[in-house]
Amino acid sequence: MNCIIIDDEKTSRVILKTLCDQTNLNVINEFSNAIEAIKYLNNHDVDVVFLDYHMPSFNGLDFIKTLKKPINIILTTSDPKFAIEAFEYDFIIDYLLKPIEISRFKKSIYKVTNKLVSPTDVTKQPEINKVFYINVDRRLIKIEIDSIYVIEASGDYIIIKTEEENYVVHSTLRKINNKLPDNMFIQVHRSFIINIKQIIDIQDNTVLVHKEIVPISRSKRSILIKRLDFL
């Protein structure tokens, strides 16, 4: 596989080059700034791009927004919160936290290899993720989507309530709603999304989900009722 490295820090580029050499990846070029890399990519095809998120003046996100053609990107960053943001972009195959560990690097390459040998079948239904990751105090925590029963907005944060634990995350209901399967979740109030499968009963303008009573907006009630299976 051919790859390029984009990172303003030479030490990072040398480390990535070392890791690539050890995994038989062919580094065909490296760049200390993303603009030069974009010019290069306009005329060359590569299998994978290692992209540093945090670069002065034109960062990794600017680079992704400027791309004209799909490309496999592995994001490298020191900040897990940027890594989370990265998954909003389809081009990002994986992220690597600096300093990059060899075993983690190999997993990442495995992901790219799998993608390259199994191109997406356009007739296949898109696979719905069963999990997503949240960033809590520099820890990336895996959340099983099935286990969520309520998500509540609280100022600039959301509280993800699962059967095991509650998690407070800096995000919005709109953002998380995009990551949830439509057939399983519904927003019943401006501050609440619920898991339909965990509804126990509905009374007037409230719904009991798992063990929590959640208000239902008048406008959302009929939508919710239509989504339920009746005898």
Partner: peptide, 20 residues
């Protein structure tokens, strides 16, 4: 851990840090 006992790789990594 990166150099895997290869002294030449170790030297390259240390040198780049010493420069940068």
């Amino acid at each position: 851990s990166l150099a895997r006992e290869d002294d030449s790789i170790k030297k390259i990594l240390i040198d780049v840090i010493k420069t940068e």
